[in-house]
Nucleic acid binder design. Structure first.
Length: 216
DNA sequence: ACATTAAGTGATT
DNA sequence: AATCACTTAATGT
């Protein structure tokens, strides 16, 4: 039986009942792989707490970060897969211990017809990711790496709710598809500009980092 | 004390 | 901006 109190704000009562009856609530530890590339999707995940990282694996073994799924969100890619039961193009891994509601995909069809709030939830997560992808394309096409790094750091801090980031240069490099050396240099530069402080496995964003930067 | 891993840096392309 | 080669610093055993 799933706890749906968190969801009562976004879903209508009938849907909450169905969720309680059919969704499985599970807790996954950090590092758990929820979905491998190539696997087909059997359940829609709905995140209650924690963070799940979604990325592509390139043929040469590098990974490319697509997005994070945060609490009260679901994964847009799984929607696109499950409609036609196509194997997944992406890998999903638990970044931070997560409670997840697993919804069997065959309920998707009925729910979309039956529940307004479900339909708008699906549309909303799709629209949100789509817009995000557009911004990402913008970045890749027009911004240099140092700007991407700043956006990345701000994003990290916003989603973790902390100015102290637990992340190594190596990890950042992997997620931005570049090398560690480059990240180290850029971070060093930002440190010298007084925007942040560097420690081993930790980066502290100073208030100057957030100053005079547009909020969205 | 030693090994391992993270980070810093000059030189080269 | 990427890569190499090397150094220095922090952390684990």
């Amino acid at each position: 039986m799933a706890d749906t109190t968190l969801l009562s704000g976004i879903f209508e009562p009938g849907l909450l009942h169905e969720l309680e009856a059919h969704a499985l609530k599970k807790t996954f530890e950090e590092g758990t792989v929820l979905l491998h590339a190539g696997q087909s999707v059997t359940h829609i995940p709905l995140i209650l707490s924690g963070v799940v990282k979604i990325f592509r694996t390139e043929p040469d073994g590098r990974e490319l970060l697509l997005y994070y799924v945060n609490p009260l969100e679901s994964c847009a890619m799984t929607f696109t897969c499950c409609m036609q039961e196509v194997p997944s193009e992406i890998t999903a891994i638990v970044e931070e211990r997560a409670e997840v509601l697993l919804i069997p995909i065959d309920l998707m069809d009925q729910w979309i017809m039956k529940f307004r709030s479900w339909k708008s939830f699906v549309m909303k997560t799709m629209r949100y990711r789509f817009n995000e992808m557009l911004r990402t394309i913008d970045q890749l096409a027009f911004q240099r790496l140092d700007e991407r790094l700043i956006v990345y750091l701000g994003e990290k801090s916003r989603t973790s709710g902390s100015a102290l980031l637990h992340v190594s240069h190596e990890q950042i490099a992997a997620e931005l598809a570049t090398s560690r050396v480059v990240i180290s240099r850029l971070l060093k530069k930002l440190e010298q500009e007084g925007l942040l402080l560097l420690y081993r496995n930790e980066i502290k964003l100073l208030s100057t980092f957030f100053d005079d930067r547009d909020p969205v």
